[in-house]
Amino acid sequence: MIQIQVWADFECPYSYFQTIVLEKLQARYQERLEIVWRAFELTPVEGNILPTQSYIDNLEASKSEPIVVQENLELLTPKTLSYTWLAQESVYFANSQGLSLKLARALFDAFFLRGLDISNEEVVMQIASQIGIDAQRLKNALENGELTKHVMADEQEFKTYGFQGLPAMLIGEKNFSPRSFMPITGYKTVEELLKILPR
């Protein structure tokens, strides 16, 4: 089985596009491909901040990617950027149920297409429930602190691998040494990933 570990952030448009690409690969490979969500925050601050000009410029540049037209994505410019830790912990929780990609896509859609505040617990719980996650179990997992440890470990591992940007991926054969996995930085299309994936 091929495994792709992906580090991404919910305020990064290229991370959004990568999630859509991974969904397409998952549909093609079915049970031969496992996607594992890893967490990394671009804006690790509490409260809301205004998007910087460089963020807005990056978002505008991302709109020229072919996938935006193919998927008919009408990306909104967020009024504020906020803490995505809750979203990251929730998607990590969804890994154990094989729903991480589905929840990640729903959270990206909520943020970029509907302008919702995904740092709001009520919003995240509602989205999680809609895709089949038990909101009470998720709430309990969030409250006991276990998910926080995992997300912190993910962020540390991102630095250990020396990734320079998001999205970032490790691609290899499941159950082999992590050292055998190929590190990939930056958004990759379906075609680009098909050339990289082990045969």
Rank of each mutant, 00 (worst) to 15 (best):
I2M: 06
Q5S: 07
V6I: 08
D9C: 00
E11W: 07
C12H: 06
Y16G: 02
Q18A: 06
Q18R: 02
Q18I: 01
T19W: 05
I20L: 15
L22C: 00
K24I: 02
A27D: 14
Q30H: 10
Q30I: 08
I35M: 01
V36K: 10
R38K: 15
R38M: 09
A39V: 03
A39E: 05
E41N: 11
L42W: 04
T43S: 15
P44S: 04
E46L: 13
N48Y: 13
I49L: 11
L50G: 12
L50H: 13
T52Y: 03
T52S: 15
Q53V: 14
Q53F: 13
Y55E: 02
Y55D: 09
N58W: 12
E60T: 13
A61T: 12
S62N: 13
E65H: 12
E65S: 11
P66I: 03
Q70T: 04
E71G: 05
E71A: 11
E71H: 09
E71N: 10
N72R: 15
L73H: 08
L73W: 11
E74L: 15
K79V: 15
L81N: 02
S82V: 08
W85F: 15
L86T: 05
A87P: 10
Q88M: 13
S90W: 09
V91R: 00
Y92Q: 13
Y92L: 13
F93A: 05
A94Y: 00
A94K: 00
A94L: 04
A94E: 03
G98K: 04
L99H: 11
S100Y: 06
S100T: 09
L101G: 07
K102Y: 03
A104S: 14
A106K: 07
F108M: 08
F111W: 08
L113I: 04
R114D: 10
R114L: 11
R114I: 05
L116C: 03
I118N: 03
S119H: 05
N120F: 06
E122D: 10
V123L: 03
V124L: 10
M125N: 12
M125R: 10
Q126P: 01
I127E: 07
I127Y: 09
Q130Y: 05
I131C: 09
G132H: 01
G132Q: 01
I133K: 05
I133E: 00
I133M: 08
Q136N: 13
K139S: 12
K139M: 09
L142E: 01
N144M: 06
N144L: 05
V151R: 09
D154V: 07
E155M: 14
E155Y: 07
E157W: 08
F158Y: 15
F158D: 09
Y161M: 06
G162I: 05
G162K: 07
Q164V: 12
L166N: 09
P167H: 06
P167I: 06
M169T: 00
I171P: 00
G172Y: 00
E173C: 03
F176N: 15
F176H: 14
S177P: 08
S180K: 10
F181L: 00
M182A: 12
P183N: 02
I184Q: 04
G186W: 02
K188F: 07
K188Y: 07
K188A: 05
T189W: 08
V190K: 09
L193P: 02
K195D: 11
L197C: 04
